[in-house]
Computed example of a mutant assay.
Amino acid sequence: MIDPQADAWLVEAAGGDIERLQSLRRRVLEGEPAGYVAGLIRFRGLRLKMDRRAFITDSETSLLVDVVLEQGRALQRELHRPPRVLEFGVGAGSLSLALHALEPEWRYTGLDVDAAALELAAENAASHACRLDLLQSDYLDGWPDDRTPPDLVFGDPPWGSREDLYDAGRDAAYYDAMPPASAYPHGGRTAIHDELLRRLRAAGWAARIVLNYGVLPEPLIARSAAPLPQWRLVHPKPGISVLVGEANIAPRP
């Protein structure tokens, strides 16, 4: 059975062609992810191009967008200016574009280690007239030395293992179809989060951090977040955890 949201993407892609719709549905039932079959997704009302260059945005990350909006607006009140927002692991650009649709005056930058994903993000940004600066970067290595650090860093880096799933309908085989290393981290269920937090601390950025930890257990998240001087968890939906913290406590520019 095809998820109703995914089927809506197929219907949109078929454009009224019943034979094409049947063919698309057959491919999904045979195991292909619907976003790749359709060549598009809908995320928070935005139509976005999707293909195998990038991870298919999980619907649950809409909850992460809500938390980022809340924190970004709080920073804007504190700073008396639009915040500089950095998305770590921008992928297809879905999350930053959803934020831009609601807060177009914020300054957005997206980092990703995968050049192909950045190409797709650029295409989606152009289609929505979004000013999204994109940098290829392994963690923070690609951030220019002369650039002012961001006020807010957010993201949904790969987390968990093949047993940590939002629902049974998107099993390990579903995520195996994504680009290599985009679904699960190597080195442990929070390995990428751990290294990102370590590097943010080392960089000395006085940035607020908003990171999705999905369905991971809270004791594991607490160990991951331990290096931060200040952090807390919010649960936009029962069973889903988003970390809100500070990389370093210092005056913001």
Rank of each mutant, 00 (worst) to 15 (best):
T61S: 14
T61M: 13
S62G: 15
S62R: 10
L63T: 06
L63A: 08
L64F: 06
V68C: 13
G72E: 09
G72N: 14
R73N: 08
Q76T: 01
R77W: 06
E78A: 14
R84P: 00
G89Y: 10
A92P: 01
S96H: 04
S96T: 14
A98G: 09
H100I: 00
R107Q: 14
Y108A: 02
Y108H: 03
G110Y: 11
G110P: 07
L111N: 10
L111W: 06
A117K: 10
L120C: 04
A121P: 00
A121N: 01
E123N: 02
N124F: 04
A125Y: 08
A126E: 14
S127F: 02
S127P: 00
H128W: 15
R131G: 03
L132H: 13
L132S: 02
L134P: 01
L135H: 07
S137E: 09
L140G: 04
D145L: 14
D146R: 12
D146I: 05
D146E: 09
D151T: 00
V153T: 13
F154W: 15
P158E: 06
R162K: 13
L165A: 11
A172Q: 13
A173Y: 04
D176N: 11
P179L: 08
A181G: 03
P185M: 05
H193C: 14
H193F: 02
D194R: 15
L200M: 12
